[in-house]
Design a protein around this nucleic acid. Sequence first.
RNA 1: GGGCGGCUAGCUCAGUUGGUUAGAGCGUCACAUUGACAUUGUGAAGGUCAUAGGUUCGACUCCUAUGCCGCCCACCA
Length: 941
Amino acid sequence: MPLKKSKKPVAKKPADRRPKPAKKSVGAKKTSRRSASAAAAPLLAPAELPPAYDPQAVEDRIYASWEASGLFNPDNLPGERKEPFTVMMPPPNATGTLHIGHAMFLTIEDILTRYHRQRGKAALWLPGTDHAAIATNTKVEKIIAQEGLTKYDLGREKFIGRVKEFVAGSQGTIRKQVRKMGASCDWSREAYTLDEPRSRAVREMFVRMYQDGLIYRGSRIVNWCPRCESTLADDEVEYRAEKGKLYFLKYGPFVVATTRPETKLGDTAVAAHPDDVRYKKWHGQTITADFGSGPLQIKFITDSGVDPKFGTGLVGVTPAHSAVDYAMAEKNLLPVKKVIGEDGKMTKLAGKYAGLPVAEARQKLVADLEKAGLMDHVEDHDLNITICYRCGTTVEPLTSKQWFMDVNRVVPARGQSLKRLAVDAVRSGRVEIVPDRFEKVYYHWMENLRDWCISRQIWFGHRIPVWYCSSCYVEDGGEERAGAAAKESRRHEGVIVSVEPPTKCPTCGRAEDLAGITQDPDTLDTWFSSGSWTFSTLGWPEKTADLKKFHPTSVLETGYDILFFWVARMILMSAYAVGDIPFEKVYLHGLVRDEQGRKMSKSLGNIIDPLDVVAKFGTDAVRLSLIIGNSPGNDLKLSEEKIAHFRNFANKLWNIARFVLRSSAGARRPTSQPKGKTLADRWLLSRLNAVVKSVTDDLEAMNFSRPGETLQEFTWTELADWYLEIAKIEGQKGEILLYVLETVLKLWHPFMPFVTEEIYRLAFSTGHNDYLMVAPWPKSGAKPDAAALKEFVLVQELVVAVRNLRATYKVEPGKRIDVTLACGAKKALVMAQSAVISGLAKLDKMEFGAATGSANATAVVHGIQISVPLGSLVDLGAEKKRLAEELAQAEKYLASLEGKLKNQDFVARAPAQVVAAEREKLALQRDKIAKLKSQLKELGG
RNA sequence: GGGCGGCUAGCUCAGUUGGUUAGAGCGUCACAUUGACAUUGUGAAGGUCAUAGGUUCGACUCCUAUGCCGCCCACCA
């Protein structure tokens, strides 16, 4: 009993055991046992298979054997594999553990990878993790806060040490969990956005873009999170509705409405709509306003974005603290007056309010204005405040000297701006987004993209590869002005931008005293590094063989929630760096929600932990539950009941295998599709071919739910419930059963890799790295046997009709009954199938001809009248009622068919096929009605 | 303010070029337990496909409105 011996100890091993290729415990046993008996027959007596599939006893062992086989690495795959299939795993944030959403994407990507691997491609699925700069930084700040520490207590070096420690632990957990899901990714190529090769790629990218003038340093408006003490990208802010006030201030000769009076100290203009007649005479003038910190020179400008109906139709323009206002300032070359600093306090430009936190400054200013009679009135107002997507703190828009990526400047080598390149990649069809409705969303976002602020003031991340020479570099000072001048540092003396740390200043030659050359303290936006993920993982900037072979990648599979953050950035950066698309297709999945459709969250306590449900139901069941019943771009509602259903299904498949193995003892394993001998054989094989085609077509179209449903229906209903039952009657089906089982395993394997691989190992594997994982995908060559399909349906319906009668009259399930069939032209078919029909319907005698006597229960199917003499069991009244109901229904249907066929337009315009089908239905209904009527007459109705 | 998605059986969802008596799973009801499987089998009940129009011989499917529910984007100071 080698199976049982090998099972227990392996199952106890921890999931995280990283198997060493040399140690082939499973393979070795299998090989020695197998080598004696060649490949002809199943090698395991079915008695050795436990009656229930036990995922816990199988999964870790199977995964370890896959990993040991080296077959996750495309370089090791058998045969000549010219065509690559590449998926880059969206690197999970190294901030903790995986949730059920990760389990979903792992499943989808694994299905894709396994399918294409079976199709004979060089399938590469490259795993990795993301350092997730702000998220991880914030997380570790929280952790050390529990020790009563801040990052400043530790200092930069020590703090980063703590982060690295945390990340290492998190990565270990993630690796374990990814394996637990059965992911067939190539661990030998695992990458991390902050490891050395990726860091080098980031620096290289930065330097090249700087040299091409696409990265510049300038003082522009950014989103500033006072808690994180860092900038945020435009898409890293979220909104929260809040009740606020709208203050109407006396503003020189006007009244201007504002929600943030304290920012008015930084106003440099006031704007009206150009067509607003009330203010025409002020256009171009300069007025003076004073809010208590001295007179302000305010230019009157016009902007079509101003809504004349809101407030007084005037906007106080505060370039330093509003993105909209900054845009107006750029157009009008207005001065920028920064009254709020990065510390969240008023600057010295705020006069007497300098040094006050923003909230206090507002209170004081409002009080002062009221005192001075400068407050016209105050209204309640609903407003959307911007908050940090990581910590929820109110974001302060302010101008700051940062590094930006210019998305509108023409890329020298490409002749177009980054924005245009990224739009065209999708517009041209080279990148296809599934579902396609997201293409519109993508265009809209990309067209409105502004220069991307890429510098962050957090400590953890890629340090900006820029150094400043203290001898040559002079910070700009003085008054700022919006517009072209803000992009000051495309080139600047004393600014050294370099992949490797500089050894001397290129301007002054300063070398010995490197203390005078200091690196920019800032780090890069995390998306800057993940934007290069598709090619940095393959060795870029080196011209590696991997890069040549596997890029552009085939499919990028990720959640629709990071379409902008990540997908768009990858298209942008790939267009720049490699002059190509990063992937051919984008498949966007939805969110996993709880059974009530709520987001899963710790506070709601409705989180489904993938490891919990995997332990409870098995990985295969969890995988299916995340795939079936879901379509791209739509959210999925998940419940344990659903997972339990697929646990049951995995067990069903297991038991189908047990049955097949015990029924096929001594049979040869066919190398091609056997010929069917009986109607049931021909039906099943024909159905199987149709299923192969349908599943293949669906997977090619990246449709995962439907092939799962198709396979489930075929496996459970057609194969198990019908064919296996017939096999018990007809016998002698060893070869067909083995063939169908093997084919079904191959088809199911991408969806449920563990149970299928285990069955394959027990039933078919010859050892020697013979894994289902690399078994060729079935071909769907044969044409459907239309006659067999049609005839078998008749047999099925006949059987169901008899079962129905039995259930209606509560005939004991075990009892065999007699039946009289009036078959007409179908007699030959029914006679030929009499053994099957009798077996499935538990018949004793089957007679042909018209039934006699009134003690019959009757049904009509496909023109065949079934009469079951039930003697005293038949309640004549009830039977009459039942038949009358059936007759009424049939007549109703007949009437609709007649109506349709009487319609000359239908007959003339509908396709001939459709009309003919309707005519056939009509004839069948008429026949049925006649038979039902005569039976009713017989009963005296 | 602009845009997108959903609305099909009690629940979760299929329904891909317009032609089925609208399907599945779960749940419900009835019955069945000596070998592939009770993590099962057999049978049944259950829907005017959100509403109103329109196009068409024919609409769950296409078009136009409307109503809920959800999401995304946006500069209403």
